[in-house]
Write a protein that binds this DNA or RNA. Sequence first.
DNA 1: CCGGGCTGTTTAGGAAAGTA
DNA 2: TACTTTCCTAAACAGCCCGG
Length: 361
Amino acid sequence: MKGNSDFKFVAGSQDNVYWFLRHLVASRYGNYARHEEAQLRRISDGLKGLLRDEAKIEDMCSVIEDGLMDPVPSRYGGDISKRYRQTEDLVERLLRRINNKSDVRDFILAINAVINTTALQNDVKKFCSDEVVSIIDETLDVGSCESLDPSLAYDALYNVDVGGEETQLSEQREALVKYIINLRGKLGKKYDFEEDEVIRIVTAISQEYERRAGQSRSSTAGNVLETGLQHLLERFGLESTGKTEHMGDLEIDNKIEGPEGSIGFSCKRSLRERFRQSLSRQSEIGVDQIWFVALMMADLSKEKIKQIGDDGGRIYVPRDSYVWELYGDQVELEEVLYPADRFLEDIASYTGMKLDREPPD
DNA sequence: CCGGGCTGTTTAGGAAAGTA
DNA sequence: TACTTTCCTAAACAGCCCGG
């Protein structure tokens, strides 16, 4: 523990690279790798010099501590800055693992790895609005059909979701595989590591990379659906705000205001506990109803559907889903549960707008 | 097995601070 | 004053875990 006690937990060094990576990225330590890449390079160069000169370990630790703290402003708004406190914690966690020269070498390896994998993450081709638009247009058969079919709207969103998942994951994996192949060669030749040491380092990097990559996939998935819904509405000439709105803890992804009614939309892959945020507050956001589009049936319990209905919302599910098969004809759910192929036409009739089925030139 | 309650990393966007 | 940068918070979930 940090503090005055004499007890010190002595960590094993075999997972050094993993922990160094983890700490350099952790948000509780200020996400140092994202904010101070250039400084990490300087620290790494400095340490390499000290290793060559056979400097004392204490001097290397000072270089690490001073180097990490140096670019971080200590005060903010008359108080100690949050980043400064986070960086102090980072230094403490790193230094307790650095006791000899091979720990320093591991730290240098971790700095290189974190800089390289951050670059990989940034360079990976994102599944962006161009791809969303083309998958939706292909599903609707825009270009070859004489009249757009609104019943394909849900299929289009579903295809976007599946395509996004596939694309993003395989791009991220491809980048990692290339990097690891290259690194593995270097670790064997340049550093003379044993095979099991190489594997410990390579898996540390992979494990940490996936932790970050997975989080970012989750982030972009929501955006992809929002983009998809907006494009669908545009294709069928339904004018919408196209932007998410926050009213305190309440969020909707899109909004349509027609002459006869207004709808707030909430697109979700799955419907977890947060959907309640959007409900029973329609008036605050200035819409008559909130409609949900959920792609995954997995956690759509009857209780949840009822709750959406009690708050005057609707949810659209595909006709060939088990949810529709079981609940589709239940009188108590008829005001809340609707088949997905009616989604766009229901929007038009509820808001008093007209669907434009004309394919673009 | 389920659902509630929580993780961590990401992004967006607002407030505060810095600069021309 | 107007613009830019920095700091910080909120919210999302191609998530996670565990008690009843």
